[in-house]
Design a protein around this nucleic acid. Sequence first.
DNA 1: CTTGACCTTGAAGTTAGCTTCAAGGTTAGG
DNA 2: CCTAACCTTGAAGCTAACTTCAAGGTCAAG
Lengths: 169, 169
Amino acid sequence: MKIGELAQQSGLTPSRIRFYERIGLLKTVERRPNGYRTYPQQAVMILGLITTAQRAGFTLDEIRTLLPSDLTHWDHAALMDALTRKIADIEALQVRLTQSRAHLLRLIEDIQERPDDMDCAANAHRVLTNMLSDHPEALDVTSGDIRLLDTKDRRQSVSPDRRKKTASR
Amino acid sequence: MKIGELAQQSGLTPSRIRFYERIGLLKTVERRPNGYRTYPQQAVMILGLITTAQRAGFTLDEIRTLLPSDLTHWDHAALMDALTRKIADIEALQVRLTQSRAHLLRLIEDIQERPDDMDCAANAHRVLTNMLSDHPEALDVTSGDIRLLDTKDRRQSVSPDRRKKTASR
DNA sequence: CTTGACCTTGAAGTTAGCTTCAAGGTTAGG
DNA sequence: CCTAACCTTGAAGCTAACTTCAAGGTCAAG
């Protein structure tokens, strides 16, 4: 099977498949005399596996370390471990989302609850003050590193702009 | 207040504050004769507001369009609309996470449920087949664009690698 | 009058996961 | 023989939200 056909059958683009090969997620495949890649039927399954894992929140890096070159020889322990940790990540994210949602709902209520005798400017100030004093860290779940989330750990190492919450509290 | 002090009080880095100014999220501030930026006390609140909004899942772009130059003059309708939509986004993501979690749990169970008379290779194949036939689109929530999620709409326009699910199903 | 902690700027780097481009070789059909 | 639809490669571009770098100005203390 040439790359175009594999693309059709897997639902991915050829560029994506070549990309996966480049980063070592797919092992280098056989070539025809003319240089064209030739894939075995199994490749469809591997690609399906990869996209499924991605949807479950695994990064390509994680998938690469878990995927054995031989699909029948998995590292059972590592796999179970990864699955378990990913579930924990998802749960942490769920907690965070629940809090965010609640926070937004409270905010909406708070905005609508303007006392009759208060003008918009004062109300804006009231709401803002409420909001900023609201989450005394509550939302700071600083969750695990699940890639469904944009949690790129923005902490710093040792660098020019080295302060960030130096003092206070 | 100079930028360093604002950084301390807000918990952000100076580079980040300057960056926010560059992209038009913060309006250009006053300068001292020597070129240093000078911030009013209010700036702390604005930055707090921005980071809070970010944690709730708003992108800087969204925040920019919602933030009025005068903190006491909000576009009430647009704000409510955005908040409501963000809540919907969060809920969509929660649905997706619940499905992912369930999927992973089922997978773990499935792996452990190996029939006594089956070897690991065959079990691997069984599990894989199960998994790939499992989600007949169920996980394809293709949720809203909440930035907590890595949902960069990978659909294509008109391009070289123009096929992606041309036929099938 | 030197040191070091600030401040300034514009440009380039980072991460993840791809896509797009440029410049070409191959092949099947008419 | 030509054309269109494939295939190849390496390099560069994209997005978001920053950070880092280089090269330099400012200022208070000792």
